[in-house]
């Protein structure tokens, strides 16, 4: 029965990866086939670019959420945080335009502030959950309310609009492309690659999985649990900030309606992708596919009139539940693992 490690290690990589990515990937492929058969325009270059760009916001946030969830946490504040950061960016950039006139530096300043705010907001969530020892659900439910009402307050119940001069300069960040791929998609790709490497090829990713799997074991294994947890929230804040940076030039405004329910869409993308909500097992690749699936559903409903677009949320809901159910069934050793040990 004793198997030497090198003999055992070989079949593992390819085989495991296949089995576990297969589910979400298969669902995405089916969805694409479905979309194309319902309306061939689904695969037009313009529409594909549209889906990719739209999925970038949720996708980037979801990459961050993958770390938080893998380490056994949850962040409900991301949607409000995005709205808050967007609002603050606009206020700061408008102020800078008033003082110095609109230039490329206005946008650089806005981006810089966004990054600082995102990291800071993530740190606050992390600090309160680890050092404050308050459950992540409660902490982020609280900060979610705080950010949402702050943006409403700053916008005085209305909309914050970016100065037109600054908007013209900032506009290309959302609308322009490099090698025919829009910048938001590039951002998404880069964030996903860095996220994948962090999760699968660094000690940090391994520690996230260990903490989410069993915090005690992590502590007994000399892992600085609080620090790693806090870093996951900071990464989440950073991802929110990046998503906001590419979101603001899209509409050039922020209001209390900005980013509503993004937290749930991000969590949904993570879960559809095969990451376990209770932590311990995270998959960045799956998260990316999850984000694409969610956007594709909305897009298909838009392109066809079989199901009303108003039922978008219902279809997404069914897909989420079905995805998790199927994953549980297809887990190779799932049935036996459930038995009492």
């Amino acid at each position: 029965m004793s198997v030497s490690a090198h003999e055992a290690a070989k079949p593992r990589k390819g085989f495991h990866l296949d089995l576990k990515t297969a589910g979400p990937l298969l669902a995405l492929i089916l969805l694409i086939i479905l979309g194309y058969s319902l309306n061939p325009a689904f695969l037009n270059e313009g529409n594909v670019t549209n889906i990719l760009t739209r999925s970038a916001f949720i996708g980037i946030i979801a990459v961050g959420a993958t770390f938080v969830i893998t380490a056994g946490g949850i962040d409900l504040s991301v949607g409000s945080m995005a709205a808050f950061i967007a609002g603050m960016m606009i206020i700061i950039m408008n102020g800078a335009v008033d003082a110095f006139g609109a230039s490329i530096w206005t946008v650089v300043l806005g981006i810089g502030c966004s990054l600082i705010l995102g990291i800071g907001a993530g740190f606050i969530n992390g600090f309160l959950t680890t050092k404050g020892k308050i459950e992540a659900f409660i902490v982020t439910l609280g900060t979610m309310g705080i950010y949402r009402s702050l943006v409403t307050y700053f916008a005085d119940g209305g909309t914050l609009s970016l100065n037109n001069g600054a908007r013209e300069i900032y506009r290309p960040v959302y609308y322009e492309s490099f090698l025919r791929i829009p910048y938001p998609v590039w951002t998404f790709i880069i964030v996903a690659i860095i996220g994948w490497i962090l999760m699968n090829r660094t000690a940090f990713g391994r520690y996230c999985m260990a903490i989410g799997s069993n915090e005690h074991v992590a502590r007994y294994s000399a892992i600085k649990v609080d620090r790693i947890r806090t870093v996951t929230y900071i990464l989440q804040g950073l991802c929110v900030s990046l998503a906001t940076i590419i979101y603001v030039p899209r509409l050039g405004s922020a209001s209390s309606a900005t980013g509503v329910l993004w937290e749930l869409e991000a969590i949904a993308a993570v879960i559809i992708g095969g990451t376990m909500l209770k932590g311990g097992y995270g998959r960045i690749g799956g998260t990316v596919i999850g984000a694409l699936i969610l956007t594709a559903i909305g897009n298909i409903l838009n392109l066809t009139d079989i199901i009303s677009n108003y039922l978008n949320g219902a279809v997404q809901g069914v897909i989420i539940v079905a995805a998790v159910y199927l994953q549980r069934g297809s887990f190779r050793t799932g049935r036996r693992a459930k038995k009492p040990e």
């Binding site: 490690a5 090829r201 000690a203 391994r206 260990a210 069993n214 005690h216 992590a218 097992y281 040990e341």
Partner: peptide, 30 residues
């Protein structure tokens, strides 16, 4: 060993090296 010592859902390697993961880094990567 089940509650504090080992990650029951992980494989052998991640468990073996969890305490000393820093030894298995090459240029910062696992």
């Amino acid at each position: 060993r089940k509650g504090r010592g080992l990650l029951l859902n992980a494989g052998l390697e991640p468990n073996l090296t969890l305490l000393t993961l820093k030894k298995h880094l090459k240029h910062g990567f696992l």
